[in-house]
Design a protein around this nucleic acid. Structure first.
Lengths: 340, 340
DNA sequence: CCGTTAGCAGCAATCGATTACAGCACGACG
DNA sequence: CGTCGTGCTGTAATCGATTGCTGCTAACGG
């Protein structure tokens, strides 16, 4: 491994000059090109560890996610990654499984490794980011709101829940249940609020018997549907407020030999109880026709891009007060989306 | 941020002693506890950057994957992560999109960041790992075989293709097509070889008109099915050799108003051409009943665990000749798997 | 009682890049 | 012609932890 002194010797200059050339400071042109030649000849690339030690932070940013197996979050990761790489940063992906202890550990690692910043989809509304923030590290929270005064990027979750519900209403459904996530996550609560509001605006009932707090995973949606089917009066449609819960709901319906209904008046294509289904989110790995499902697609990649841009701004010194960005979604999503 | 000298001063010892206590060398007990008290009091944690500089490698391992959005690879990531964290390493996830240029870039980053090792699912059969290996860095290749003499962990892909095909044969299918991945990946080729062998063993034809090389993504499977349906004599079943291609096949069938067949003799449940379907892999986000699909489930998490263990061995100095581990799959998978 | 050795602690060098500061050359200006 | 300023370049300190080497202490054997 060539070191900076090797380059300096070969080019006949000091290490300081080599460093300056590599970092774009002013250096006499002929020396600069001598340095560049030497760099090429030796195949030199700076030791990032040494650089980080000196610069007091590394060129790595941490992306801390509740579930890297959820396609929503992997798409976020893509967005963050693309922006970060462009700017010369590497991205570390960390899984918390929505567990505060794992979250804390990863945030500690991010801190101790002197990572330049953190993009965090928090497990709770009060993640332990004080030490990071206190030590001047940049943090951007995504997807779920937190109480800290840090940059945040979320969707307009209330509106998402509202739009999905209204689309079901427009298809003629009247008793629309809601399967949402833990009451501790703002996304679950906000989307359910949108559901409630849409029902009220349509003059329909939104009683608590129609609202189920499950988890935001496939099993949660699956079981929630079972619970809903036992109740009376029965619902004629279900809104799942995230993608995996939606998968669970669809799977539960498929297992009951039915499928989602295009609308209550359409011909049923198979026996058994069927329900209208709305989902906030996308189904990238669906194996059935989903054109009968009301989907409100999200753009998680854009969420990641926005968050990464915000973070890079902060890293390069932006110290304006914390912002809360509401990530726009496609307007087309506001209408009934009969998509794949 | 407390530094090691602060701890040393508070404990009344030298920095060397603090370092030794923290790294489990022999130190007089009373000094050791004084150091530990000081560490607690100051909330000290060592600067990993400085440590890496001195130790000449960091405690980070890179996991370079073709597609972090593929549930197969995210499951691998889980396995690697769990083992690595346990051993005090952090895991960096990198996406190559199966593109050699991105792969090269990430491998270069892994090298320059002095990462302790790399787990690589290669984009080609000759990934640029020579510099890493040449500089003594540990590398474990997974999923696909490469020509280098490095540790490798793969499934028995020939057997996987064989078992899936035989299960279809046992269900009574006779003209079984195969949708596999690029001919440049060993997984695609090996699984297709298994398919061919199973057909021959059953006395059936495996002509090239039944074999389609697509990509290993959803669109590849989708389009391949369309291509197959146009051919004659028509196939009565399809084997998809990976999970996403399988999703594409199922989706294409769903769009044709059909679904997978339990067997040629069963009652068709809806009009239109239907096919038996076999898939090597799992469908974690399927939205339809998959009990009619022949699935040969994999255990990608175990693949990750195995690879990580191998890598950690290498990192801690194991320099035996390169090994090629064939990751075992559940034996139950050898029989027809009518699973979710 | 002295010499030898083992065990432990401390000093200082070290990893490799960055950067404050000093020094030097050259031009402008009084 | 001397002074000052400007703009590079080089020297050496610095980031913080680890570790080779030295030296001290204490125990043990002769």
């Amino acid at each position: 491994m060539a070191r900076i002194v090797d380059v300096a010797n070969l080019a006949g200059v000091s290490t300081a000059t080599v460093s300056r050339v590599l970092n774009g400071k002013n250096v006499r042109p002929e020396l600069a090109s001598a340095v560049r030649d030497a760099v090429m000849e030796l195949g030199y690339s700076p030791d990032r560890t040494a650089r980080s030690l000196r610069r007091r932070h590394s060129e790595v940013i941490a992306l801390v996610l509740p579930d890297v197996e959820n396609p929503f979050f992997t798409a976020v990761a893509r967005g963050v990654e693309d922006v970060a790489l462009e700017a010369g940063f590497s991205v570390v992906l960390c899984n918390t499984d929505d567990r505060p202890d794992k979250e804390e550990r990863y945030l500690a690692v991010a801190h101790d490794e002197k990572m330049a910043g953190v993009v965090l989809a928090p497990a709770t509304s009060t993640p332990p980011i004080d030490r990071l923030v206190g030590n001047g590290r940049s943090v951007v929270v995504i997807d779920r709101r937190v109480t800290h005064a840090v940059d945040q990027v979320t969707f307009d979750n209330r509106s998402l829940g509202y739009r999905a519900t209204r689309a079901l209403v427009e298809r003629g459904f009247r008793r629309i249940a809601c399967v949402t996530g833990p009451a501790t996550t703002s996304t679950a609560v906000d989307r359910a609020d949108g559901w409630r509001q849409a029902l009220e605006d349509a003059g329909l009932v939104a009683d608590d018997g129609l609202l189920v707090h499950a988890n935001f995973r496939v099993d949660g949606g699956y079981e929630a549907l079972g619970a809903l089917l036992g109740r009376s009066p029965a619902a004629d449609a279900v809104l799942a407020t995230n993608n995996l819960a939606g998968v669970g709901v669809l799977r539960a319906l498929a297992d009951r030999h039915g499928g989602p209904l295009p609308g209550p008046d359409a011909n049923r294509r198979s026996p058994g109880p069927e329900l209208g289904v709305g989902i906030v989110g996308d189904l990238p790995f669906a194996t059935s026709r989903t054109s009968d499902v009301v989907l409100v697609p999200l753009n998680p990649r854009d969420l990641g891009v926005t968050a990464a841009r915000l973070l890079l701004d902060r890293i390069s010194g932006d110290d304006t007060p914390a912002r809360h960005v509401v990530q726009a979604t496609e307007d087309a999503a506001a209408v009934v989306q009969a998509a794949r």
